[in-house]
Amino acid sequence: MGWIANALNSSIGKKFIMALTGVCLLLFLIIHLINNLTLYGGPELFNTVVKNLEGIKPLVRVIELILVLIFVFHIYDAIRVWYGNKKARPINYKINASAENSTLFSRTMIWSGSIIFIFLVIHLRTFWVSFNLGHPLAQSHNYYEIVVQAFRDPVYSLFYVVAIILLGFHLKHGFQSAFQTFGWNNNKYFPMVRKLGDIYTYIMVIGFASIPIYFLFFYGGN
């Protein structure tokens, strides 16, 4: 089995893991967004959706565990790759023209990723912990109200929107980068991959960021 470890520890292997876990996370975000958008259907719809998920708890737990593993590998390999890459150039250039030969998104993946990670921790604290670990509103199945209360805080909402924009940075590069890493690049469909990545990114950013903006500015509620 040593050959598998060797393959996955090579420079291409590490990137392959990054791309594979990245694509899994791209798919997860679609499901997450669809769930979130049910908030626009009002308290009843959203609470029913969450309650239905409660009904298939064991399955949700398994998926959550897989998701955690995907995140762990994505982050672990990101740090390994980043550290190795830093070591490959011990002395930096005095003048660097990187802005003229590459995109900002591609050069800042570790930083957009790091902030998304911090966001993820806070985000889990706000919603996952409240939904799962006995928040009084969760016990009465009023999950919608938890969301309303969270986004009532302008600081939290602002942080949420900023994190989503950085997620957009990450996705814009990551989407096409994953295809390139898998070796799926040719003249016929790579331009399409790039387009698709951009469309995906815009949908994700607008979709996720609209929710705190809606609750902060447009939700009359109580």
């Binding site: 090579s10 420079s11 790759v81 890459n85 070591k87 490959a88 591609s106 050069r107 980068s177």
Partner: peptide, 17 residues
Amino acid sequence: VKKMDELGFGACSNTYA
């Protein structure tokens, strides 16, 4: 690829620089 890794070159971030 193995030799390239051993020699201390970095990995690809697909920046296309």
